[in-house]
C-alpha cells in the first residue's frame, strides 16, 4: 500500500518519501544519543554498570522514536508528502502513543532535584567549569523533551492522516474499526479505510464469497466513521478512481484540546469530547490534577483541561452519539471570590 501510494504521488508530480517504521529505517543518530548518553548516564550515576550503546538502541521504543525522527528529517528535507509504513495495527498504535508517553515521563523527571545534578566524568577527573561548562542532566532531558514534543506535534498536526487497510473478513474488519476509533481518540484523523485483496467475479470467485466480502465492506461503510471506504484487489489501489492521493478523502473526528467543546450552563460546565465508533460506547473518562484522561483499549489520551475547569470538580459523564459529555461544577474551595467572600 505504501509503495502504491508513493507511485501515485509520482504520477501526480509530487515528491514522496517512504519511511519504514517497522525497524527498516535504522536507528537515528539522535535517538541513539538520547538512549546511551542520557538514559545510560542517568543509570550510571545511579550506580548501574554502563551498557554498550547497541543495547539501548535495540529497545523497541528507540526504534520507534528513530522512525519518527526519520519522518521529521524527510519533512525538513522538503518532501511534499512522507508516507510512513506503520506495519500491523499494534505497532501503529505504539508509534502514535510513544511521544506522549515519553513526554509525560520526562515531565515527571524534570524536577528541581534533577536540575541540581552535575555531570560526573567517566574517569572521575575534575572538570573545569570555566572552560567546559558541563550540561546538567536536567538540560539534556529538557533538550530531549523539546525534540519529542515536536514529534508529538507533528503527529497531531491537521495535515497528518492515517489510512488503514484490512481484509474483507469479519475479524479483520472488527480490528480495523476499533483501530479507527482508537487512532481518532489519539488525535490523528483516519481519512481512508481500504478493503484490500477483494475478489472479483471476473477472477472466478464464488458468488457466496463475493457476497460475504460485500457484507464486510458494507460494515466498513455502515460504521459512518467519516473515513472514505474503497476496495482494492490484487492490484493495490492507493486511492479510489478519480481521486488525488493527497486528498481530501474523508476524515474521522479527532479528540484534542481544540475539538473538546466547552459550554457554560446555569450551574455547571459541560465538556463534550468527540469520539467515534467503539470508543464512544466504551471509553472511560477520568481526571488527574489539571488533566483529563480518556481511556480506551488500554490507551490513555491526556488532555489539558481549560483553565476554568481546573477550578471545578468533575461530577459525572454521560454518553452521547458524538462521544462523552462530562459535567463540572465549581469547586468553591479554589473558586475565585470577591472581597465579600462570595463566588465571583
Amino acid at each position: 500500500m505504501c509503495a502504491a501510494t508513493a507511485e501515485a504521488l509520482r504520477e501526480e508530480g509530487l515528491r514522496g518519501v517512504v519511511v519504514d517504521a517497522t525497524s527498516g529505517a535504522g536507528t537515528h543518530p539522535l535517538a541513539a544519543a538520547w538512549s546511551s548518553a542520557s538514559l545510560g548516564r542517568l543509570g550510571a550515576e545511579a550506580g548501574a554498570d554502563p551498557l554498550p550503546a547497541t543495547h539501548w538502541a535495540s529497545l523497541a521504543s528507540i526504534q520507534q522514536l528513530s522512525a519518527l525522527l526519520h519522518v521529521r528529517d524527510a519533512l525538513d528535507a522538503g518532501s511534499d508528502t512522507v508516507i510512513v509504513d506503520c506495519g500491523p495495527l499494534d505497532r501503529a498504535r505504539q508509534l502514535l502513543e510513544l511521544p506522549t508517553i515519553v513526554l509525560r515521563v520526562l515531565d515527571a523527571a524534570l524536577t528541581p532535584r534533577l536540575a541540581m545534578r552535575r555531570r560526573v566524568p567517566p574517569d572521575g577527573s575534575p572538570t573545569d567549569p570555566a572552560t567546559d561548562p558541563p550540561p546538567t542532566l536536567f538540560e539534556e532531558f529538557e533538550g530531549i523533551r523539546g525534540e519529542v514534543a515536536s514529534l508529538a506535534a507533528a503527529l497531531a498536526h491537521p495535515a497528518t492522516t492515517m489510512r488503514l487497510a484490512c481484509l474483507p473478513e469479519a475479524d479483520s474488519v472488527d480490528r480495523i474499526l476499533r483501530a479507527t476509533a482508537l487512532i481518532s481518540m489519539m488525535g490523528v484523523s483516519v481519512d481512508g479505510l481500504v478493503a484490500n485483496r477483494c475478489g472479483r467475479k471476473a477472477d472466478g470467485w464464488a458468488k457466496e464469497l463475493l457476497a460475504q466480502q460485500d457484507a464486510q465492506v458494507a460494515r466498513l461503510e455502515g460504521a459512518h466513521s467519516g473515513a472514505l471506504v474503497w476496495r482494492s484487489t490484487t492490484r493495490v489501489r492507493a486511492v479510489p478512481k478519480g481521486r488525488s492521493v493527497v486528498g481530501p478523502l474523508g476524515g474521522t473526528a479527532v479528540l484534542d484540546e481544540q475539538t473538546a467543546h466547552l459550554t457554560a450552563q446555569d450551574e455547571e460546565y459541560v465538556l463534550d469530547l468527540p469520539l467515534v465508533g467503539a470508543a464512544a460506547t466504551e471509553a472511560q473518562v477520568g481526571r488527574l490534577d489539571d488533566a483529563l484522561v480518556v481511556a480506551f483499549d488500554g490507551v490513555h489520551r491526556w488532555l489539558t483541561l481549560p483553565p476554568v475547569l481546573r477550578r471545578c470538580r468533575a461530577t459525572s459523564a454521560v454518553r452521547t452519539e458524538a462521544g462523552l459529555r462530562v459535567s463540572f461544577v465549581p469547586d468553591m474551595s479554589v473558586w475565585r471570590q470577591d472581597a465579600r467572600g462570595s463566588a465571583a
Binding site: G286, R287, L288, A314, T315, S316, A317, V318, V326
Partner: peptide, 8 residues
Amino acid sequence: IMWIPIRE
C-alpha cells in the same frame, strides 16, 4: 486517576 462515573 480519579475516574468519573458515567451515569446514563
